[in-house]
Amino acid sequence: MPAVSTPSGRCGADRCPGALRAHQAADGLLVRVRLPGGRLSTSQLRRLAAAARRDADGTLELTSRANVQLRGIGDQEAVDRIAAVLVESGLLPSASHETVRNILASPLSGLDHGGRPDVRPVVARVDEALCACPELADLSGRFLVAVDDGRGDVAALGADLCWLADTGALLVAGRDVGLRADTDQVAATIVAAARAFLRLRAGRRDVWRVADLPEASAAIVAALGGPHAEPTDPPQSDPPPVGPHPAGIVVVAAPLGRLTAAQADTLAALTDEPVVVTPWRTVVVVAAPETAVPALTGAGLVVDAASPWVGVTACAGRPGCASALADVRADATAALTAAAPPAAAALPLHWAGCDRCCGRPAGPAALAVATGAGYRVAGPGGDHHGPLAERVAQARRPR
């Protein structure tokens, strides 16, 4: 069982928060819990909700990497209590590697009976292999691995390393560079590629991701003895839409990516199967009963794909972040309430308290960025002007 003391010195200037290495925000300490493949058992979800009630602000923040954050934590003793809960519930298998267990996976893999490979066992093997390699503890908390079952949903998210189950391609910084790996080779191949990146970035503590080094892709290909095949364009697809799906699956959106502890308990009460947190800040409920949709709606969660809340995210804003220039969550709520429902193909919309745009989703998105004198609202065609709610609606219209 891993210790629950905070690691020190391992990641240099990398300040990406973890479950043990808390970040000091304006509203208290913040911890980030890595969920490889986004999977949470209902027991784990209940325990996280209880920890959020007791030691944080009572909410679970869903991140763009399918992880969970607890914020508003009062002191280090509370951080240690949360860490102990994570250890006991199996969410912290490695103290040394806990910040580098960033592994995305196609959320519906093995669940929607779509005829694609089930990559959940692959995710487990990759996680185990990462944690078993001492050298990889020196990866930054920003380094991202993805396992895509071939539908192209997480392949489109710009992971440092992404394996595609249908072709065996290992994408490097989002590009097919000709590397291939069979299912039983994936974990070892990803470890070898990550080690090659670490060797290249040795001594460069301001380099966190493969795309930061132009020469990294070629070095990884050489280290793996490639290329093994002619590169092709990787597939890309949209995320699973919010709402009911066949086979008893319901994809649920949490307004602004925040689950209250009570909402988390509602999710856990609907199924005995693990839920899946997605990179789009939604949650997949598996084996849901017929009563699931009214129960979720009654809890304030979103199960209607036409809801104006679908695809809308926000950073912490004021008062949680000292850098924020506005209470973006309150402003987003007011604007969404005033605006007409978006078009069916509306772009994702991210509200940010400053120009850093923390938490911005990957891919095309509309942005509402606080300036201190209102918001700059931008879409694919540039900035928009007029009343805020109208600008936001215009920015979400795809060109």
Rank of each mutant, 00 (worst) to 15 (best):
A50P: 03
A51D: 08
A52M: 09
R53A: 11
R54G: 12
E61Y: 04
E61K: 00
L62N: 01
L62R: 00
T63W: 07
T63S: 14
S64R: 13
R65V: 02
A66I: 08
N67M: 01
Q69A: 06
L70N: 00
L70I: 06
R71M: 03
R71K: 11
G72E: 02
I73E: 04
Q76H: 13
E77V: 08
E77C: 05
E77Y: 00
E77H: 07
E77L: 10
V79P: 03
R81L: 11
I82N: 01
A84G: 14
A84Y: 02
V85M: 12
L86G: 03
L86W: 03
L86T: 04
V87L: 08
E88W: 00
S89T: 14
S89R: 01
L91H: 04
L91C: 05
P93G: 07
P93Q: 03
P93T: 07
P93W: 05
P93H: 06
A95P: 04
H97K: 12
H97G: 13
V100W: 02
R101Y: 11
N102S: 11
L104D: 11
L104S: 12
L104R: 04
S106T: 15
S106E: 15
S106K: 05
S106V: 08
P107H: 12
P107Q: 12
P107M: 14
L108N: 07
L108R: 11
G110R: 13
L111G: 01
D112G: 06
D112I: 13
D112T: 12
H113R: 15
V119E: 05
V119N: 02
P121M: 09
P121A: 10
A124C: 02
R125S: 14
V126A: 02
V126N: 02
D127W: 04
A129K: 01
L130T: 07
A132H: 06
A132M: 06
P134Q: 08
P134L: 10
L136W: 10
A137D: 08
D138W: 00
L139N: 06
L139D: 09
L139V: 14
G141N: 05
A146G: 14
D148F: 11
D148P: 07
D149C: 11
D149R: 08
D149W: 09
G152K: 02
D153N: 10
V154T: 05
A155H: 08
A156D: 12
A156Q: 02
L157T: 09
A159H: 03
A159D: 01
A159K: 03
A159R: 03
D160W: 04
D160L: 04
L161C: 10
L161W: 05
L161D: 05
L161S: 06
C162Q: 00
C162I: 08
C162S: 15
W163N: 00
L164Q: 09
A165N: 06
D166P: 06
D166V: 13
D166S: 13
D166L: 15
A169S: 15
A169T: 14
L170T: 10
L170N: 08
L171T: 12
V172D: 01
V172L: 15
A173F: 09
G174D: 12
G174I: 13
R175N: 09
D176R: 09
D176V: 13
V177F: 00
L179T: 03
R180E: 11
R180Q: 14
A181G: 10
